[in-house]
């Protein structure tokens, strides 16, 4: 379980990216975070593995609070899938996937590229699962199409059997068909291992289709928290097109403005 305890993040330039967010994401849940650009989705995700340090509050995974002392150990349990795939472009697909094991492989083995046979077998198996074929193994990652690169990214994320998968707009630059395929891959691989997924998305339809739970964010705050069925079109409208959250008149006083509940766990 991931527990955010009243975390806030204020950037040095004064931007308040997160305001006092508390959220529990139970084990095995596929939790999608929606919200307009700048809402703080990436900042929230990156607080889980310490890529961003919250200015207040804490994040804990299964009771272990993220601190500088526990960071390295926690990161080994948390995988990440990135919007821009973040592969080493000039390295082979095989090398990129095996790199997912770097936290547990000894430095000597890593520098020599001398991975154990069972690790190499695992890389091949995962690449097969994400729909790549053996001839892709030695291709340079940067030469693949975006969809194929994200498949490699997914395979890399699951190499080290993560308990938590953070996916920051994993399909933002992919076509709708491939986006659906990739999200299905992430969901199925996570369910198989009972891994928790925290995934930010910009596609509402995909979010509704894949999420166990939807969290809507605006201006660093959680303004919606519920199951996909509760996330009606009117709420989509409010989440993306409403005036600034602070300036919004109380929803119930203004007809036509759909109600948004502020969820504070």
């Amino acid at each position: 379980m991931i527990r955010f305890e009243s975390i806030s993040k204020t950037w040095p330039d004064g931007t308040r990216a997160l305001s006092n967010i508390s959220l529990d994401v139970p084990k095995g849940q596929f939790c999608v975070i929606l919200g307009p650009s700048g809402a703080g989705k990436s900042t929230l995700l990156r607080a889980v593995n310490g890529l961003t340090q919250p200015t207040q509050g804490s994040v804990a995974i299964d009771g272990t609070v993220l601190t500088p002392a526990t960071e390295r150990a926690l990161r080994k349990r948390v995988a990440m899938i990135h919007q821009h795939f973040n592969l080493t472009n000039r390295m082979s697909v095989a090398g990129n996937v095996l790199a997912g094991l770097l936290p547990v492989v000894s430095t000597v083995r890593a520098l020599l590229g001398w991975f154990k046979p069972e690790h190499r077998a695992k890389a091949c198996r995962l690449l097969g699962h994400v729909g790549l074929s053996p001839e892709h193994l030695q291709r340079r990652a940067g030469d693949l199409s975006g969809g194929q690169q994200q498949r490699v990214g997914v395979a890399r994320a699951f190499m080290n059997d993560p308990e938590v998968v953070l996916a920051d707009e994993p399909v933002a630059s992919l076509d709708p068909k491939i986006s659906r395929d990739i999200l299905a891959l992430i969901r199925d691989a996570a369910k198989e291992r009972n891994a928790t997924v925290l995934c930010s998305l910009h596609q509402v339809d995909l979010a509704r289709e894949f999420a166990d739970r939807l969290v809507g964010m605006r201006d660093g705050r959680v303004v919606f928290d519920g199951i996909p069925a509760e996330f009606t079109d009117a709420r989509v409208e409010a989440l993306y097109h409403g005036v600034r959250w602070e300036d919004a008149p109380k929803a119930d006083k203004q007809p036509g403005m759909p109600a948004l509940e502020v969820a504070i766990a």
């Binding site: 960071e71 990161r75 990440m80 795939f85 430095t107 080290n160």
Partner: peptide, 15 residues
Amino acid sequence: KPQEALEAIGAGKLK
């Protein structure tokens, strides 16, 4: 980008 991906999973500086 690739460095951030590896840093995020705790790969360590040298690796």
